[in-house]
Design a protein around this nucleic acid. Structure first.
Length: 498
RNA sequence: GGCGCCAUGGUGUAACUGGUUAACACGCCGCCCUCUCAAGGCGGAGAGUUCGGGUUCGAUCCCCGAUGGCGCUACCA
């Protein structure tokens, strides 16, 4: 396959009838990667010729999705709705050269014929209308005419960069509509008119377009244009292996942003859906999973694209997310976290330096950016809540509050407060009271963080500082209804005191 | 229904032009750490490559068929 062009021109051509969905995002990513890898041009084109279903809000949604995953385009966005003359001229060329003809059948007629008979395909009844007669009918304005492509006999084929040679018998193709009777082009016409006009060299798109491709190949030859290289990318399916849809939950890319997914994690995950670095040319990357944007650009080629559909696996996405969050520097994470804080109307009360330190401190346990506005709050502010489950698990014993107060008192008067000294004092108290250190430790953790899961307790103490530790240990008893609530429900015995 | 495409553990992928104990990752299970786990460390189960025929000394890999899945089948894109 000619896979190493000097400066390819590719495009992503979404239709603004919905938000940028996962499949579209992956197609956009592959196009972008391909263009960047070969130093080519990535064009964004909005296919909004379906006025009924297209909307400006959707256009904005798509652009937002593109920006979120970090895909920038070199030309466009072009809007097909603003390029109508090109399509009309192209249709005219096809008519003039005898490759297309006017059709006077109305949509209603077509539908009823289809419903009553076995005429699954258009019967071509207008194809052989007398030229002059046809022209007259059209010009008298009474019968609006659509323009159809006259599919020739024979077969149509192309060498797909992913699937190899694909061939269709022309008999399987109907004389499809190029221009609707209102003069608006259909997809079949506008794609090829634009792809030719924009001098595209490679068409990377979803495999759902394979069946449309022969119709386009036919137009290229009718127009005397050079055929670009087609590379169809397998589709992304839901967990039940049916086409990914709203039924499977989030389908819009922005929904993943809203779930606290880091864009690079999403991009990395997406890149590996239907593509792999390929061990032949890059044996050293055979077992790799995480790739930066630069890595992806360097490694991406068409022959790494697989032919079979891929299933979208949320667990794997979640794993990538934890990997990226963990690997990020806190100052790179901060702006992303701040967005979450704003959304949650949470205002951290500590200094920026402390905040950055806190991010580094807790990020190994983060699964989503949401955690920073949720279960990690106690590290950024004194305004946090006690997780009822954590209270039930570790703070249920009625003797705990006074023990924690005792501990607080000892910390308060201690000459110094370090990770080591905090541990020393706590263990001494446990021994003295003849209770398990673990009970005190776990109880303290909940008192300090509100959570059952957090970093090592003494590290948390050192991080929080003596004053906060003392204050939080003391306040376990008061002002936390959850606690008393949980105290009543004393089924959990696992960590209670002896 | 017709046409097209695809087919490696639950999932994503790997396995040079046919020769491997079929690899890696996610997930799952277990153990360790013991101060928690959604963190970390260690280990394990899980496919003989959808099935059936060929070709071959030898097929995940080539051919044929079946089955299954997906796609297209609009004056949608």
């Amino acid at each position: 396959m000619p896979d190493s062009p000097s400066s390819p021109r590719v495009r992503f051509a979404p239709s603004p009838t919905g938000y940028l969905h996962v499949g579209g995002a992956r197609t956009a990513l592959f196009n972008w990667l391909f263009a960047r890898h070969f130093g080519g041009t990535f064009i964004l084109r909005i296919e909004d010729t379906d006025f009924e279903r297209s909307s400006e809000a959707m256009v904005e949604g798509i652009l937002e999705g593109m920006r979120w995953i970090g895909l920038d385009w070199d030309e466009g966005p072009f809007f097909q709705s603003q390029r109508l003359p090109l399509y009309q001229a192209t249709a005219q060329k096809l008519i003039d050269s005898g490759h297309a003809y006017y059709c006077f059948c109305t949509k209603g007629e077509l539908e009823s014929r289809r419903a009553e008979g076995t005429a699954a395909m258009y019967d071509r009844r207008c194809r052989n209308l007398d030229r002059a007669e046809s022209e007259k009918r059209r010009l008298d304005g009474k019968s609006p005419a659509a323009v159809r492509f006259a599919v020739p006999d024979g077969a149509t084929s192309w060498d797909d960069a992913v699937f190899g040679r694909v061939e269709f018998a022309n008999a399987e193709l109907e004389d499809f509509v190029l221009l609707r009777s209102d003069g608006i082009p259909t997809y079949h016409l506008s794609v090829v008119a634009d792809d030719i006009d924009m001098r595209l060299t490679h068409i990377l798109r979803g495999a759902d377009h394979i069946s449309n491709t022969p119709k386009q190949v036919l137009q290229y030859s009718a127009l005397g244009a050079e055929l670009p290289i087609f590379a169809h990318v397998p589709l992304i399916l839901g967990p039940d292996k049916t086409r990914l849809s709203k039924r499977h939950g989030a389908t819009s890319v922005i929904a993943y942003k809203d779930m606290g997914i880091v864009p690079e994690a999403f991009r990395n995950f997406l890149a590996l859906l239907g593509w792999s670095p390929g061990s032949k040319q890059n044996p050293q990357h055979k077992d790799r999973e995480t790739f930066s944007s630069e890595d992806l650009i360097q490694l991406f080629t068409l022959d790494g694209i697989s032919k079979s559909n891929a299933v979208f696996d949320n667990d794997k996405l979640a794993w990538f997310n934890t990997e990226y969050i963990r690997a990020y520097d806190s100052n790179k994470l901060l702006p992303l976290i701040q967005i979450e804080w704003q959304a949650a109307e949470f205002v951290p009360t500590r200094t920026e330096e402390e905040i950055l330190a806190a991010i580094d401190f807790v990020k190994p346990r983060a699964r989503s950016l949401k955690d920073f506005a949720g279960s990690f709050r106690a590290h950024f502010s004194d305004d946090f809540e006690y997780d009822p489950a954590a209270v039930t698990k570790f703070l249920a014993d009625p003797s705990l509050p006074s023990l924690l107060q005792e501990l607080a008192a000892r910390y308060d008067v201690a000459p110094d407060f370090t990770e080591a000294s905090a541990e020393e004092l706590l263990r001494a108290l446990a021994t003295e009271k003849n209770i398990k250190a673990g009970a005190l430790i776990n109880g303290s953790r909940v008192a300090l963080t509100g959570q059952a899961v957090a970093p090592s307790l003494f590290a948390v103490m050192a991080f929080l500082g003596k004053d906060r530790v003392v204050q939080r240990l003391n306040s376990v008893d008061k002002g936390h209804p959850e606690r008393s609530l949980a105290g009543n429900a004393s089924q959990t015995q696992s960590n209670s005191l002896p």
